[in-house]
Amino acid sequence: MSATTHRGPAATAPASRTGTSPRTRKYRPRGSRGRGASVALHATLLTASAVAVFPVLWIVFISLGPGSAWQQPSEVVHHLGLANYRFVLFHSSFPKWFLNSVIVAAATTLLGVLIAASSGYAISRMKFPGHKSLMWTFLITQMFPVAVLIVPLYNLMAQLDLIDTYLGLVLVYCTISVPFCAWMLKGYFDTIPRDIDEAGRVDGLTPFGTFWRLIVPLARPGLAVTAFYSFLTAWGEVAYSSQFMSSKHATLAAGIRTFASDQRADWGSMTAASVVIAIPAGIVFLLVQRHLVAGLTAGGTKG
């Protein structure tokens, strides 16, 4: 397998923590491992990847069969086709839900990240009364169960005439995503050296100008992670959207349940719809995945 050969010095540096039973074998350079260890490593990773990927592939597989494919999975191979997709895309309300979800998720992401970023920056760089309690509030807000907020929020939205509107749902989703994003971003901004701010100020930028022109471009990994989080939150949220939106404005998560929750679940359409839904999420994910590790840990740990 891969790492049995002795590696050059360049490869040893990141590898120094491997060391599988180094004492019992004869001398082996740092960072290399025996054939057995390599096999075990790859076997574990392969198994784990299979478990992670299988449910998703299974849905893709079923969706390609006829409508009743989920009852005879073995038949799917002989009847591959796009009938489910055709039904979902052209003969159901799915495109409407999809559009609704796109609008709501995009608006939530944009609004959430924007306002979370500016306050995250303020908390990170400026000492002002209330900045500690604000951090604490962000954390507490994560703990709010749906059950405590949903009825009062419903009443509030009804008073503001925002029930069954995009704006209403976007605002509701901001309550979920903004505190988390601000918390994460504050942590991320902390990792950016203050010298940069000072250089910007010396060159005559306002604090907001410093933030907008210098820090935001540098904070791209952190922003990417929070955008990803906001988008996924809005894209997959179930509880609020199924209570707040009528069938005309239903988002995907609420709408797709009508395929499944009835007495006879239409799994064919369900699976096809799921695949179509997963695609935008997957694209967003691919765009930000290289930033995920950096953005998440900086925010999470130094928060």
Binding site: A3, A11, L41, A48, A281
Partner: peptide, 26 residues
């Protein structure tokens, strides 16, 4: 250091990229 590390990483993060309700339906 593992060969195909990027592949493994993408595969292992996949459940996060798929909206939760789809994973649940699967």
């Amino acid at each position: 250091p593992v060969r195909f590390r990027l592949f493994y990483r993408l595969a292992l993060i996949l459940p996060w990229a798929v909206p939760a309700f789809i994973g649940v339906f699967a």
